[in-house]
Amino acid sequence: MSELPSTIAQLNHTAVFATDRQLSAEFLAVILGLKVSAPFGLFLPVDLGNGVTLDYYEMTNEPIQSQHYAFLVPDEQFDGMIARLDAVGVTYYADPSHTEPGRINRLFGGRGAYFDDPDGHNMEIMTRPYARP
């Protein structure tokens, strides 16, 4: 029996369902200050800074089930992301339930906010990772 590699499992990519993959991928890329990559088969990837790719997949025959995606972002880029949300008229919230509009949170010594993408996915930007026991 061969041994498993000593590295840990890492997320490489995940599919994000969208009614319009171009619109949704470009929306997130603009807010986070990223670029949309060339299509890869049925997927339109947005490459994140840690080697993970969000692969937007267009679904037009079923309703999109809302998912949550959280992004650890540099503190010095947070204000720009909030400004871009304001510029495109997207409300951000301090909480995941979207009850505190136009506010940010200050969890774990950082800053964070939640907002919906064009398909209602609950996106989160945060400058500090959650403290775990």
Rank of each mutant, 00 (worst) to 15 (best):
A38W: 06
V30D: 12
I125P: 04
Y93F: 00
L85Y: 08
P96N: 00
Q10P: 08
R132Q: 09
F71L: 10
L34I: 04
D20C: 12
H98T: 10
N50E: 05
L107S: 12
R84N: 03
P39L: 04
D75I: 03
G41M: 15
E3V: 10
N105E: 00
M1E: 11
Y57W: 04
E26L: 09
K35I: 15
F115L: 07
F115T: 10
G80K: 03
A131I: 06
A113L: 03
D117F: 05
L107G: 10
M59E: 06
P63E: 01
Y92M: 14
V73R: 02
E26D: 11
V36L: 09
E76P: 01
V36F: 12
P5A: 15
R128H: 00
E62D: 11
T7Q: 00
Y92C: 08
H13F: 12
I104F: 01
A70G: 09
D116I: 07
F27N: 04
F78S: 15
R106S: 14
L85I: 06
F108D: 13
A94R: 01
Q22C: 09
A9M: 02
Y130Q: 15
R103E: 06
N50K: 04
F71R: 14
V36A: 07
S37V: 09
D47P: 06
E58W: 08
F43N: 15
A29P: 10
P133F: 01
V46C: 13
V30W: 09
P74K: 00
G109P: 12
H98K: 13
T14D: 02
T7D: 02
H121I: 03
S66Q: 15
D47C: 07
D86N: 15
R128I: 02
M59C: 11
A83L: 01
L54S: 04
D119C: 10
T99K: 07
A131K: 07
Y69N: 15
S37H: 04
R106M: 12
I125Q: 03
T127K: 03
Q22K: 11
G112L: 08
N122F: 07
I31L: 07
V88R: 13
T127Q: 02
H68L: 04
A87P: 07
Y57S: 01
G102Y: 03
P74H: 00
V46N: 12
R132Y: 05
A113E: 13
P45Y: 03
P39Q: 03
P39Y: 10
Y114D: 15
F43M: 14
N61P: 01
A29Q: 12
R111W: 13
L72T: 10
P63M: 10
E100C: 06
P45L: 08
T60G: 10
I82R: 11
A18T: 02
G120D: 04
F71C: 14
Q10L: 11
T99S: 06
A87K: 11
P129V: 00
T7S: 03
A94V: 07
D20G: 13
A29D: 12
L107N: 13
T19W: 07
M81G: 11
P118T: 11
A70Y: 00
L4M: 10
Q10N: 08
D117G: 09
H98I: 05
I125Y: 01
R21D: 12
G112N: 10
Y69H: 11
I8H: 06
T53G: 05
L4G: 12
M126T: 12
A29W: 12
T19G: 13
Y130S: 14
D75V: 02
